[in-house]
Nucleic acid binder design. Structure first.
Ligand SMILES: [Mn+2]
Ligand SMILES: [Mn+2]
Ligand SMILES: [Zn+2]
Ligand SMILES: [Zn+2]
Lengths: 149, 149
DNA sequence: CAACAGTTTAGAATTACTCTAATGTACTGC
DNA sequence: GCAGTACATTAGAGTAATTCTAAACTGTTG
C-alpha cells in the first residue's frame, strides 16, 4: 500500500465519520464547529468508549486538531445534555463520559481505571425498596468493582 | 433540668461514646489521639452516617475540638483502611465516608446530596456476566439516583 | 522519664474543573 | 457574497477538593 493510497483511504473513512458526526450535531441542534466535529469524530465512531476530559483533549490534539481544554469540557457537557453522552462517576478523581447512552451497567477495574459495559437488559435487580413518595428514579447504576487477582 | 446536671449528663453519655471510640481505635491498631477520638466519637455513635470531609471538619470544630482539615482527611482514610469506614463516590464533587461498613447499597437524592442505605441482604442482582478470569469482585455498588418529582 | 515512632498541622501544591471576557465563526436574511 | 448577530472558542484566572511537606508535638515503650 503506497503512502498516497493509505492517506486517501484514511481520508475517505475519515470523511464518512466526519459526516456522521456532523449529522449528529445538526440533529442535536448544535452548530457543527471544527472543534465539535473533531471531538464527535473521535467519540461517535460506533465504539463504546469511556473518556475523561483530559484523555479526550490529548487524543484530539494528537489527531492534529487544535481544541482547548475548556472547549473539551464545554462540549462533553453539551453532548451529555443533548443525550449523545452520559456521565459516569466511578472514582473521586474525575468524571468519565460514556458514548453508550443505552441502559447499561459497568465493570470497573480499580487499578487500571478501565470501564466495561454490561447491557442492562440482561440484568435484573430485585428487592430494592419502593420508590419513596415525591421522588422518581432517574437512573440505577450498578458498578462491579474488580481487582486483579 | 439545671445547667450543672445537663452538663453532667452530657459528659456522662459522651464518656461512654468516647470510651467506645477509644476501644475501636485500639482494636484497629491506631493510636487513640485527641483528634481521632473526637472524630471517632462523632462517627461511631451507632448511627449510619455519610459524611464529607468538609462537613465532618465543621462538625468536629463545632463540637469544640481543634482538628485540622488535613487530619480529618488523614483520619478518614486511616479509618477506611482499617475497615471502620467505607468510601462512597456518587458525584464527581466529593467523596462521602460511610459509617455503615456492611454490605449495602444506596438511594441518592441528586438535588440534596442525601444518601440512604439499602441493606444488601434484601437485594438480588441477576444476570451479571461471569467474573473475568484473573479478576475478583471487590464490591458491587448499586446506586439508585432519585429526583424530586 | 527518655527516646522514638507515629501524629498533627499550617500552608503550599496539585488536580479537576469552571468562569470571564475578549476574539472568532456559523448561520440568516438580503 | 456580505453584513449582522447569536453562538462558540479560548487563554488564563479562579475555585473546590484533596494531597503534600516538613516542622512541631504526643502516645507508647523500655
Ligand atoms: Mn458535569
Ligand atoms: Mn481516598
Ligand atoms: Zn458505559
Ligand atoms: Zn451507606
Amino acid at each position: 500500500m503506497s503512502k498516497a493510497s493509505a492517506k486517501t483511504s484514511k481520508s475517505a473513512s475519515n470523511a464518512a465519520i466526519v459526516q456522521a458526526a456532523l449529522e449528529k450535531l445538526r440533529a442535536a441542534g448544535l452548530r457543527p464547529t471544527k472543534q465539535r466535529i473533531a471531538l464527535g469524530a473521535l467519540l461517535f465512531d460506533g465504539r463504546d468508549r469511556h473518556v475523561t476530559a483530559e484523555a479526550l483533549h490529548d487524543e484530539v490534539r494528537g489527531a492534529g486538531a487544535d481544541v482547548s481544554l475548556a472547549t473539551v469540557y464545554n462540549t462533553l457537557h453539551q453532548f451529555t445534555e443533548a443525550g449523545l453522552l452520559r456521565e459516569v462517576v466511578v472514582n473521586a478523581g474525575a468524571s468519565h463520559f460514556d458514548t453508550n447512552v443505552g441502559a447499561h451497567h459497568h465493570l470497573y477495574y480499580a487499578d487500571s481505571g478501565e470501564l466495561h459495559d454490561v447491557d442492562a437488559t440482561d440484568v435484573r435487580i430485585e428487592g430494592l425498596p419502593a420508590v419513596p413518595r415525591g421522588a422518581e428514579i432517574e437512573r440505577v447504576d450498578v458498578i462491579v468493582r474488580l481487582r486483579r487477582r
